[in-house]
Design a protein around this nucleic acid. Sequence first.
DNA 1: ATAATAGTGTCTGTAAGACATTATCAA
DNA 2: TTGATAATGTCTTACAGACACTATTAT
Lengths: 224, 224
Amino acid sequence: MDIPQPIISTVDIVLLLIKDERLCVTLSKRDKDPYENQEALPGGYIHAEEDRDCLDAAVRILRQKTGLLPPYLEQLKTFTGAARDPRGWSISVAYFALVDADLILSSANPGLTICPVDALRRLPFDHNEIIAAAVDRIRNKSQYSSLPCYLAGETFSLPRLQKIYEACLGEALHKVSFRRKMDELGVLEAVPGQTESAGAHRPAQMYRLKSEFKNQLKLLVRGL
Amino acid sequence: MDIPQPIISTVDIVLLLIKDERLCVTLSKRDKDPYENQEALPGGYIHAEEDRDCLDAAVRILRQKTGLLPPYLEQLKTFTGAARDPRGWSISVAYFALVDADLILSSANPGLTICPVDALRRLPFDHNEIIAAAVDRIRNKSQYSSLPCYLAGETFSLPRLQKIYEACLGEALHKVSFRRKMDELGVLEAVPGQTESAGAHRPAQMYRLKSEFKNQLKLLVRGL
DNA sequence: ATAATAGTGTCTGTAAGACATTATCAA
DNA sequence: TTGATAATGTCTTACAGACACTATTAT
């Protein structure tokens, strides 16, 4: 009994970033069937002989398809079943990554498209569902953690960071409370002397993640 | 290129319950190699020809190994890699289930053991790690949801429910605040006239989940 | 009556949001 | 000077925890 059937095992990655103050996902043109030449989540087979585990596979696939290693990468959820892939019963271990938009937009990678998560058309497989799960995840974690800071690049002003949080959460935030909470989180430090002039008004102080938090999320006891 | 290697695909289930006011996990004696006759998480191969998806497989395996369908079952996390199973590169989609202890303890299922999550010995595979992830999950969700109610059975007193929440969270709760929050959640209703006498003192009012919440979690904006 | 726990009312400190004011730039 | 946004101070309200008190049972 119990002879396992062959199951297609893949990894898909939801790479999120902020463009024009909107939360966007990175799509990649598929280079083979099924759905050849269509936009879909970057993904690929697990290579059992090469990848130590799925996280390893996600890193490899991200490098191949986007050329970068995002500062934040975590497992999202696994999508399975007979119906989601025309090739048959499949497992896709989905990952969830955040990156500063400039890193992608500057590299001008030809096969990639950036699309707002609230303006997606119908995608192959169950990729719409996977992206919805990623948006849920970032919404949730943005309420009580420093997660959105990974979308902000090296240095950033507090007004811009607030815009990023708002894009993640899908709602406006109270300025004073937001600043109190960021202060309470304690992950930011002002960059001495560095400000950002953005028009005919007082320039904003620039901040950066304290080095000890560049690879570590900080959580709040109470949310934003 | 890209010819997928065979990968072992399984489902493992962390079935949690409260026994003696402690959070416990259900272990099952393995009936085949590897680790035959050792206690481990109930699990099994995905049957591609039989299971529509992994949730389906989890339900089937739960029925086979425990004989019951818990009121709460959700995907936990997927554990993968070359190192976790002596048979080779494997994927285990782990699920997380809650059940009223009486349902297991009364059925006297011979192959099952109930063990407190903070008194586990070393288990086969990476099952300790999987259980740790489940405990993390329930800790987290217990802070702001009605999740622990699924551990409480049909009817229960508020003092008992508080004990259950405390076992999930691993810390004592403030009585007045706990009751305020349960009231705010609005998932409970008093069972008219039904009380529980537990010694030489005032008996406790019994409550039950409102029927509309028996299959639906309720979340708090702010935690407990 | 007493002991023990169930259940509730009130007070207080804290934290979040509302509002207002000051700061600093470009034009 | 004006207009725009940055940044901060103050007030109000809401909520969580502390404490105290009442309720109800068995012995």
